[in-house]
Design a protein around this nucleic acid. Structure first.
Lengths: 218, 218
DNA sequence: GTCTATACATAGATAGAC
DNA sequence: GTCTATCTATGTATAGAC
């Protein structure tokens, strides 16, 4: 493996572990076992190296979720993916980037992250649609919304685990999500018993596509 | 407002906006409009100031969720809290800290964050328990697990929004979560139609309390 | 291609005057 | 209590030899 590949892998690893802003070129070169010259020969700088490392990280992460599009029972695929082992306290190598101020300020890096999330969202939404079409989930669930929800449970699970320094919170979050899916699946032909109006107390409510960021800013 | 308070507020604001590692004492002093001497007179250093600022941020964040423990319909309170306006692209001032390498390495700061999450978890779990006891949610849902799930949806929603630079993904995630709760609520006395066994395909499955971090490390 | 030496800015903190 | 001046370490990048 040449210096270039070693540098990319070292950067990918450090990006996951420490983020972009907190990772110095020096650390990367040390981890890769190469000198300064090599790095600035193969890359124009830290940014350039990070871009290539992020592509690698994203490919790795996406490969782990290929099971969503496999054959077989769609609802099972959703649940299996939610319950698949994930290193909670290490965090998500892609999601982590969204909290890094230097990444947010770097259109190229942020763009990569955004695209990766979009791609993942499509994977989830497609599988959810399959499950609904197969009658495994109630049709009133919106595949796009639910895809965001499940993606959020995953990303949030990492956050909870890191906050506690333990795997447990992430696992609990995943079990809870699967239990909700199961509960929803159990009533895929709901026979509404009586007009329930406690939702009305919420006010006009939010329609799909309507944003709720109108007022809050601070 | 004295220099001390000005510094704490400025730090709290910058912690939210840029994180801990990326916020320099100089920036804080500039934002507060005071000189170096003031800061090192009132605080032993960046760490000390950040601890006091985090306490302020956590108090602010917790106050926003007091509605969970209000009177009235528990399920409505859960849903109202999920749908409450939140500044997705700004992120969560507490959850953000879990991605900061310097925070992770600082037991005092990390401890504050962990405690805040625990407290929030109790709020959610208690309200969920109320909803189950009131027959609004099916009893097979575990309040502790579901509390983690909903907390994760919130935290993850912020991540999705930041990844896209848009409010929409967070709103979608929240709508999806509410829709799942509604679907689960609709069948709180499920009349199982036929033995469904597609869950069995997942293998032995995970029992409550059993962790899934056995193998994965990289 | 890879190395060492060097440059320049910024981080976090201290010294000491007012 | 608050200020300015200063200190040391580190971050990122460049220069130029091998």
């Amino acid at each position: 493996m040449g210096s270039k590949e070693k540098l990319i892998e070292a950067m990918a690893s450090l990006l996951w572990e420490r983020g972009y802003a907190a990772t110095s070129p020096r650390e990367v070169m040390a981890a890769a076992g190469v000198g300064q010259g090599s790095m600035y020969h193969h890359f124009s700088g830290k940014h350039d190296l990070a871009v290539q490392a992020m592509r690698l990280s994203i490919d790795t992460a996406m490969a782990r979720n290929a099971t969503l599009t496999a054959d077989g029972d769609p609802l099972d695929r959703l649940k299996a993916n939610l319950l698949a082992p994930r290193p909670g306290t290490k965090g998500c190598r892609v999601g982590r980037m969204t909290q890094d101020p230097e990444v947010l300020a770097d259109p190229e890096l942020l763009g990569l992250v955004g695209e990766a999330f979009e791609q993942m969202h499509r994977l989830w939404a497609d599988t959810i649609r399959e499950a609904i079409d197969a009658g495994q989930l109630p049709p009133q669930l919106d595949p796009e919304d639910l895809a965001s929800t499940l993606q959020a449970v995953l990303q949030g699970g990492y956050v909870l685990s890191r906050a506690q320094g333990e795997q447990a919170p992430m696992d609990a979050a995943m079990r809870g999500a699967v239990a909700l899916l199961d509960a929803a699946a159990d009533c895929r032909d709901p026979a509404p018993k009586a007009p329930r109006n406690h939702t009305a107390a919420l006010g006009p409510g939010l329609d799909r596509g309507e944003h709720i960021d109108k007022k809050e800013s601070a």
